[in-house]
Design a protein around this nucleic acid. Structure first.
Lengths: 232, 232
DNA sequence: ACGAAGGTTTGACATTTATCAATCACTGCA
DNA sequence: TGCAGTGATTGATAAATGTCAAACCTTCGT
């Protein structure tokens, strides 16, 4: 893999504490590839041959069953995906597709496992990353089981607002179709849900959201650090 | 902690490969406690002071939000819970209560983290356990998002059938009220869902289930190793 | 054995969410 | 510039799921 993206990858929590030698060894074995939009990088059920790192663009993780499909996560630079499958040497549970033109680093799973065995700092970082992903997944379950779709949307907007800097105006950064699937609703329903949030001070203009009455929305959404916070 | 349960705990994947010395050190620092039914061992949001191991009885993990409550998992001997919070030294995301009289080993989180740093085999086992739990949680998300409540019930029955030995007759091992919450439905709805499965050969008598037409039920449920299998 | 308490089931009904069909709006390209 | 393709919205309707109330059934302790 070329050198150019290495410093960015090195900065990731997952790789920042490992030895230089092991990091270079990992990078040496990996590939940087550029993909056009809408390419299915991974199909669920496939063996997890590579740990993926998105360095540019965006990748959707989704799942299929019985002719239905649901969006599980959208991965943006710079972060990894499919770590758990890589470590367990087990089939991927989700499919992945590029949403736009994207660059992805592919690190052979075998090398990840080998260096995990050799580098304690890397192992520690992996535990941290896994525990964090695990907890994020449990939060998602709580979000799904404890909230109605309207409440999920309201809390999503508050989270997205924070990610975008915290101001009253921000962009969705995701097609509404995909957002609907992510929130487990239909596009029609999402469209109506936005209208239902109008009385709480949510204005929608294309992909631009304006939250004109933050306290009211918060009062309705009741965000909780045990469901919504990014870290913790 | 007394010696009696140690061999059973030692056999857990999480503890089986670590050094004797470190295992004894962990056990030495921990407590074996017996709790009556319906005791809330942990409240979500609390600091994760202990890694818990259920050695007898059963413990329900559940979550609350906005005056609602949902059952997330039921832990039976011999297994651990609250591992991710322990490792990240972060607040628990779920509450836990005993369902019956139960015995639980409490291992101070601090010791778990200390020995994780010192014992590579333990660290490896922790990664394995975390990755496995993470994947189980993603499967739960897929189950929730891709299936209707009827389909969730049908697949649950097939999984429970396997856990109970695979024969056409088996016990639910869980109150229906709790099962309903676990499957994200109301008790009333669960009761009706059982009736809806009758045409597919499901007979219910109290907590005894008889699957009289396995192929039909499987055809309806369409279980998938990427959602339903215990391991993988 | 009895009765209280709580789980389960049933029926009637309300709410939420999905589906289908049509229209509108936007984007990209010929 | 115009048009095809796709996403977004709207209205009408259907299906899934939740709520409420009552009856029934177990369990368990007195």
């Amino acid at each position: 893999m070329p050198e150019s993206h290495r410093p960015d990858i090195r900065k990731l929590d997952l790789f920042s504490e490992m030895s230089d030698e092991n990091f270079q060894s990992l990078m040496h074995a990996s590939y940087l590839q550029t993909f056009p939009p809408q390419i299915e990088l991974i199909t669920e059920g496939d063996a997890s041959d590579f740990l993926h790192v998105v360095v540019d663009g965006s990748v959707e993780l989704f799942a299929r069953w019985n002719n239905r499909e649901t969006s599980v996560a959208i991965v943006r630079p710079i972060s990894t995906f499919i770590l758990a499958a890589t470590l367990r040497n087990a089939p991927n549970l989700m499919s992945a597709r590029t949403l736009e033109k994207s660059r992805v680093v592919l690190i052979p799973s075998e090398d990840v496992r080998r260096i995990f065995d050799a580098d304690n700092n890397f192992a520690r970082a992996i535990v941290s990353e896994l525990a964090s992903g695990y907890r994020a997944s449990i939060k998602k379950t709580k979000d799904l089981k404890l909230r109605t779709s309207l409440e999920r949307l309201a809390n999503y907007l508050l989270r997205q607002q924070i990610r975008e800097g915290g101001g009253p105006e921000f962009e969705l950064q995701t097609e509404k179709k995909r957002l609907a699937s992510y929130l487990n609703m239909t596009p029609e329903n999402l469209s109506r849900a936005f209208k239902s949030l109008k009385p709480y001070g949510v204005e929608v203009n294309g992909s631009k959201i304006t939250i004109s009455n933050q306290p009211d929305l918060v009062k309705f959404a009741r965000p909780s650090p045990l469901i919504d916070d990014k870290t913790v």
